[in-house]
Structures are given as structure tokens and as C-alpha cells.
Amino acid sequence: MLSPVPLTATSRNLGVANRFIASLEANGGTEMAPAITAALVDTLQANAVNVRGESMLRQVIFMTDGAVGNEQQLYQLISDQLGDSRLFTVGIGSAPNSDFMRRAATMVRGTFTNIGKQSEVKDKVEQLLTKIEQPVLTNIGLYYLDGSVPDYWPSTISDLYQNEPLWVSIKSPSQLLQPIIVSGNINGQYWQQQLDFTDNQPARGIDLLWANAQITALELYKNAASGPRVNKQVEALGMQYHLVTSQTSLVAVDVTPVNPMSDKTIDANVQSHLPHGLQVGNQAQILPQTATSSRLWLLIGFSLLGLGILHYLWLRQRLPGQVLVLKADA
């Protein structure tokens, strides 16, 4: 361990940290519990103030490239000890248990970053650090004017960072749309904004956003004990809102009538045609070929023979006409 207490980010301390990291030897296994415990040892001072007396938001980054075990124990540890801190999980490669990482981060208003390739680590971590440097709105809550809390999903709203929208789905009866108050802290100061829905136009698909958010939340907190119940709830939501979920899928059914007169069908054998160009050499396929062109050949042969005889006679000048012509000349 580098230090049991948080250190100020001075150049000297950064050098010490770099040397500590360089001396680390990986020996397999991901023990998350000691790391979490060590990082949160001063939970009681979570609402610490900095040197200038401003309250600080503590952000813990958990980065691993290994699989994480004993998840239930870790959930308990995180919810007990993390208090008002934020946990950001970063998984590198395919080994980390992304379900656990996402759920652990969402429980305490953090985010989960999955990094597929080693080459992307630098970019993704820089993006994450740039983002979490600038929390704009923290401890976001929603309530009606009369103080009651609407039914909203996701039930824990993450902090709002620079250039990010606030995205919450609320379900309420359409006749009783009351103004909603969004509250939070900006730089330690209380902030609130009233939202009126009077001039909003109805839009399609908003109910699907709500259902999707609820399904995501249900599945986030699914465990072995609640599994069957969560599956049923997800199935019911999927059926009601016509969504593709882990329990439901869309099936296309062709309702085009294939035969509109199916009650008056006629059974008949249709002659099976051979593929174009296929010669049937098999005698069993057709009746025996019981005709030859013999008479045609005989006709042609005798015709040619007759022509030949006529030609011979013509050459010999024995045709009747020729004899007559010759006699006339003489």
C-alpha cells in the first residue's frame, strides 16, 4: 500500500506513487475487498473539507483486468462503506465481470468503463478522468411541489458532469401532471429548478424509454434469490410495452392468406417436368422409342438416287429432251 491516508497531489507525492506502481509485481488474483476497505478507511470523514474549507466529493476509481469473485460480499461492503463517495469501475479486457462492475458503479452513482483492448486504455482513462474532474450537479433528487417523490427510473441518478443531459423517466397519470422540482448541489451550493409540463407535446415512444429504464434497473439488482421474480417482471413489462428483453423477443407472423379458397381444394397430380436441357437416357423414364426415320431416309435416298440417274443421263445426253434438241440443231 502506498499510503493509509489520502495524499495531496504534489509532484513529490506523484513521484512516490509512480515508483510504487513500478515496483508492483503481479501475482494473480483480484482481491477487491482489501482494496475497497483501504480506500474507504476514513469513511467517517467522507464529508471532508479541503484546505480552503470547501466540501469535497470523493471519487474512488477501481481498475482491474481480472475476474472479480464473491460479488455479494462486495456489494454489501460498497453500500456500507462508500457512503457519499462515488465509485468508478474500469474493466480492461474480457476477464472482468462486467455485470458486477456496472452494478457496483451504478449503486453509488458512478459509471462503468469497459476497455476492450490494451491500446485503448490511455484514451479511455483520460476521457474518464477528464469527465469526473468536472462534476456539475451532485446529489440529484426529484420531487413534486407537495414534497412527494415520483416513481422515477433509474432510481439512483448519477451525478451530472460537464456537457451531459439529465435523463430520467417518470411515470404518472396524464391528467395529474404536476410540476417537478429537480434539486442538487453545484459547488456545494443547493440548487433547484422547477419543470412545468403544461406546454409539452405528447410524443410517441416515451413510455418505451420508461419501460426500458425500469427493465435495466430490475436486471441490475437481479440475484439468485430474486431471479425468477425479476424474470417474470421483465417478461410482463416486455409483453406490455412490446419490447425485446432477456425474456421476450419479437416474432414475425405472415398473415397473408396463401389460399383464399382452402375449403374447395382439388387434389390432382401435376406432371413433373424435367429441368431444362436434361436428356433422359433412362429407358424406364419414357416408353421405348418405337419409331425410326427409316421411311424418311428411304424417301430421301430414292430421291437422291433418282436425281443421280437423271444427272448421269443428262451427262450422257440421253434425256429425251436433249436428244430432240440435238436433233433439231443438226
Binding site: 418405337t290 419409331a291 426415320s293 421411311r295 424418311l296
Partner: peptide, 17 residues
């Protein structure tokens, strides 16, 4: 008994029996 039809056709490629 099978033979080709028609009987007075000259060419040999009969299609009927």
C-alpha cells in the same frame, strides 16, 4: 403392345405412343 403414333409420320422423333 406399344408402338409410335401417328403411323404415317416420316421423321423418327415421335412424342406419342
Amino acid at each position: 403392345l406399344i408402338t409410335c403414333y401417328p403411323f404415317d409420320q416420316l421423321s423418327g422423333n415421335a412424342e406419342y405412343r
